[in-house]
Design a protein around this nucleic acid. Structure first.
Lengths: 221, 221
DNA sequence: TAGATTGTTAATCGATTAACAATC
DNA sequence: TAGATTGTTAATCGATTAACAATC
């Protein structure tokens, strides 16, 4: 239990050194997405109510999440979009550039490679791989499709921290194994495969159908 | 407040008629995704621990979620995959077929149209639209790309309940307006646009970058 | 039977919300 | 100043978890 003095010091320092709870980290990431887009649209300030409309997070919850790290808002005005973006990046410690390896040069892989959605948050696709010999050597944007044989070397050279699997379900596990062997700790899985990985590796499986089922439930009831 | 008798009746009936809480509905949807894939892989039973490994939901939480609706498991064995799938579908009331209209015949649209991920959960793409006159009339799988002019009519004829936007950010709001006008109540947004819709319409914005930021935070700390 | 796993309890923890003074 | 919106409190609600008897 914190004494009063420790608690005050904590607030002043913005809880430096403490790990965020799962919920707070997830919500801050979502605020960041909306803020990034609001910035693109030329918005200079945003209120907790506006953030709430776009994220479906209660506005009190948003103010509470933010006020735990400092007084970022201006009463009667709202939050400065630019400065809130950098504050949240600082809190999440994801201000830098992070390199991605993309697997699969089909429709989905090409859609990801050409999207702004990762680039806007500091993620950069630095290599695209495919198994299909016919696709190796092809250009996808600024990249040339490579064979997975070079994976381990490229992970090290390019400091790759995330592997994105945009491949058929049947191919996913074997690539996941390769990524684990190469030392990658975060795997983003767009296939339906249930990937088996060691405990120190995080798999996130994209699930648009799950999100849709969930939305549908509240529509039907 | 429920009396003891009402409470017992509730349990016996599996809380029929009660709306699930947001959290329960979200988790049941995720269990369903894993179960569907487990079924494809020929798995006949699954334990709460295995479900936990794949969904990152605590195994006690899973047993608790399920036992609220009936005794679906067998002690010492686990849950029958097939029967659990149909039980959860019944609870979520999403057993039927649900029709989707897809917007955008680019790489992302084609990836979605050819994916099993929606089909496995009872969602069927029944129409693909694009603005680009060059793409209209082209075949995408079994579909022909159509002009959005016919939208309102097709929504009615085909009983479309979900609109999926796989279009550039700049085109998304205008299509969302068209969908709202046509009476569609669920919009799935793959663009980065912050869509403005009436309160009775649900927008879900896909956010792989948000998920990635979140995963990265726990990797970096 | 022995081992495994469910169903359920009881206790704790964090999320959520309404309300409102502070203040831009 | 008047209106708007933050920062914060206090109270409630639901999620989470460990533990374990029941039982397949």
């Amino acid at each position: 239990m914190s004494s009063m003095i420790e608690h005050d010091a904590e607030s002043a320092l913005g809880k430096v050194g403490e790990r965020l709870s799962l919920g707070v980290a997830a919500r801050l990431s979502r605020y960041l997405q909306v803020l990034t887009q609001a910035k693109k649209m030329g918005k200079e300030t945003i209120s907790s109510q506006e953030l709430s409309d776009y994220t479906h997070v209660n506005s009190t919850q948003i103010r509470r999440d933010l006020s735990g790290f400092g007084k970022f808002g201006k009463r009667g005005v709202g939050y400065n979009v630019d400065s809130l973006v950098s504050q949240i990046r600082k809190i999440l410690r994801t201000s830098g550039q992070h390199n991605i390896a993309l697997f699969g040069a089909g429709h989905l892989g090409r859609a990801i490679a050409s999207s702004d959605i990762f680039a806007d948050h500091g993620f950069r696709v630095v290599a695209i791989f495919d198994k299909d010999p016919a696709k190796i050597g092809e250009a996808v944007g600024p990249h040339t499709v490579r064979d997975t044989g070079a994976l381990a070397q490229i992970v090290e050279e390019e400091d790759i921290v995330v592997g994105v699997l945009a491949v058929p379900t049947a191919a996913a596990q074997s690539l996941a194994d390769d990524l684990v062997a190469a030392g990658v700790k975060i795997i983003f899985n767009y296939s339906e495969a249930l990937l088996q990985v060691p405990p120190e590796v995080t798999v996130h499986t994209s699930s648009p159908a799950v999100d849709l089922l969930y939305a549908l439930y509240f529509y039907l009831t």
